[in-house]
């Protein structure tokens, strides 16, 4: 009788054990297992996430005892929302996203700044425009993505040059490059290390000369992508945050090392199958200059002054209702 009862109870006991073992907080049977975390990227797999992928593929996370699920980003993805909803433990967000989130009560913390130089710049035809100082923008048609970072940056640049929107023609930029190719607009916002490489190749084929307008050269340093986590995560699992940051930054440093160029490209090719080898090489060279522009600055260093300027720009343009003192949400990177 007892034997029959035991036989009946066996599947229930087995299922209970399986559930306990598979529960995220459980430690039973997982003493040696890696700690699982999710990492939501800002954009699709391309050169801008080379270091993230490198850290995963080349076991930098695993060596820190982490099993990281890297989730591709996209226009409708928002890492900060996912942190709050518990769908990810780490993510990549732009500085304006972080500042906006903080101003609305989100408890987000910046743990590393990936781009030291913002890749968002403008590409322009040198035979149509000559830009030596900001005032040279006057009278030109300037491409801008309304609502995007480039709008905030461009408006700040115009204000710095004492120009108003009446002194220039703002052209609304979308996915279609036709107005730029047709020379209807000769000043076009691009991501310097990705889109600009495709566009540059096309312009070179057409025998056209072009240059890049970098807002930082004119004193506007608007921070781009950074790595974020939640305050709760930082308080409750500081060791995991430290391990993740160390692994990630080591991965980025290795990926941007000139000596590892072929390895980085080979790694990225597993994810980005559409770009040619030539394109990836050019993209990597440019990305390296944006991520690690000076040997004296470690990869991932948080540029507090640039963050403060970003907040000021957003405040001046009324994108946030009041100051947030963003420096309170920046956490210095650990030694790695």
């Amino acid at each position: 009788m007892k034997k029959i009862q035991m036989q009946k109870a066996f599947p229930v006991i087995l299922l209970t054990i399986m559930l306990i073992v598979s529960f995220p907080g459980s430690r039973i049977g997982t003493a040696e297992a890696a700690e699982k975390v999710s990492y939501r990227l800002k954009w699709l797999f391309n050169m801008s996430v080379a270091g993230d992928i490198y850290a995963d593929v080349h076991q930098f996370f695993a060596r820190q005892g982490l099993k990281v699920t890297i989730k591709e980003g996209g226009p409708e993805r928002d890492a900060i929302r996912e942190l709050e909803l518990g769908r990810a433990q780490f993510g990549v967000a732009s500085a304006d996203q972080v500042i906006r989130a903080v101003s609305k009560g989100a408890t987000v913390v910046v743990i590393a700044q990936l781009f030291q130089v913002n890749p968002l710049q403008w590409m322009y035809r040198t035979d149509r425009m000559k830009i030596e100082r900001l005032g040279d923008l006057k009278g030109h048609t300037l491409g801008v993505t309304f609502g995007g970072n480039d709008e905030a940056i461009l408006k700040t640049l115009l204000a710095k040059a004492n120009l108003t929107e009446n002194d220039v023609t703002l052209f609304s930029v979308r996915y279609d490059y036709t107005p730029f190719f047709k020379k209807k607009v000769n000043f076009w916002p691009v991501y310097r290390n990705t889109q600009a490489v495709f566009l540059g190749q096309k312009l070179r084929q057409a025998g056209e000369d072009f240059a890049f307008f970098n807002p930082a050269d004119h004193g506007v340093r608007f921070v781009a992508n950074s790595v974020v986590t939640s305050k709760t995560m930082l308080e409750k699992r500081p060791d995991t945050v430290r391990k993740f940051t160390v692994a990630l930054l080591r991965g980025w440093q290795a990926a941007m090392d000139q000596a590892n160029a072929q390895k980085t490209i080979k790694t990225l090719q597993q994810y980005d199958r559409d770009s040619t080898l030539e394109t990836l090489q050019e993209q990597l060279d440019i990305t390296r200059r944006l991520i690690h522009p000076k040997a004296s600055i470690p990869v991932g260093e948080i540029d507090v002054a640039a963050w403060k300027q970003t907040e000021k720009i957003m405040l001046d343009q009324r994108q946030i209702p009041g100051p947030v003192n963003v420096e309170r949400y920046l956490k210095a990177i650990p030694e790695y």
């Binding site: 929302r81 709050e84 989130a101 009560g105 989100a106």
Partner: peptide, 14 residues
Amino acid sequence: GLDLSDYVIPGPVD
């Protein structure tokens, strides 16, 4: 219910 910030879901005042 989930104590989410105004960034995730705005409050009635917002």
